[in-house]
């Protein structure tokens, strides 16, 4: 119950922050990526602002064994640069540029973006559902391009 309460609070604050920051406006997000047009630096201020409390939180987390509600704090993932990380990020960046939505703002605007927003969300969810099979197919092919140790 407590876990759900704090999760809902975090989600609410995330959504409020996305709205206040202007990042639910696809024109501002596309403006950030449009370095050859009317470039809009707002996203850099959003990212920079968001990193400050997160950096503090990671420093606090480093001195603890578990979270306040008793879960083990997430371990640092293996630092391997693989084709999924690179290829996936390139695909994500391409989709992000085409309509100016990433998963957070897309979900935050579920009730605000009308039919267009729902079409994007359904396509995004379909992509997410299809990914495990796609990942297995790529692995079966022995696709380990770009793989390197840190």
């Amino acid at each position: 119950m407590q876990r759900s309460l704090f999760a809902a609070l975090a989600g609410a604050l995330f959504g409020a922050g996305l709205l206040v920051s202007g990042m639910m406006d696809t024109a501002k997000v596309q403006g950030w990526l449009d370095v050859f047009g009317a470039w809009d630096p707002t996203l850099a201020f959003v990212m920079g602002g968001a990193m400050v409390p997160m950096a503090v939180a990671w420093r606090i987390a480093a001195r603890r064994q578990t979270s306040v509600l008793g879960t083990a704090l997430p371990a640092m993932p293996a630092q391997r640069l693989d084709s999924g990380l690179i290829g996936g990020s390139v695909m994500f960046g391409a989709g992000w540029a085409l309509v100016g939505l990433c998963p957070g703002p897309a979900m935050a605007a579920t009730l605000l973006n009308g039919t267009s927003g729902l079409v994007f969300l359904l396509a995004m969810l379909a992509g997410m559902v299809a990914t495990p099979a796609l990942r297995r197919a790529l692995t079966a092919r022995g696709d380990t391009a770009w793989t390197s140790a840190r």
């Binding site: 999760a7 995330f14 922050g17 709205l19 202007g22 920079g48 602002g49 306040v68």
Partner: peptide, 22 residues
């Protein structure tokens, strides 16, 4: 507004990490 919203987003992430461990 970007900076203020960013601080809110980061605080949400800090809350989720430190309370829920996620």
């Amino acid at each position: 507004w970007g900076l203020i919203g960013g601080l809110m987003i980061g605080s949400a992430g800090a809350l989720y990490l430190l309370m829920n461990g996620r």
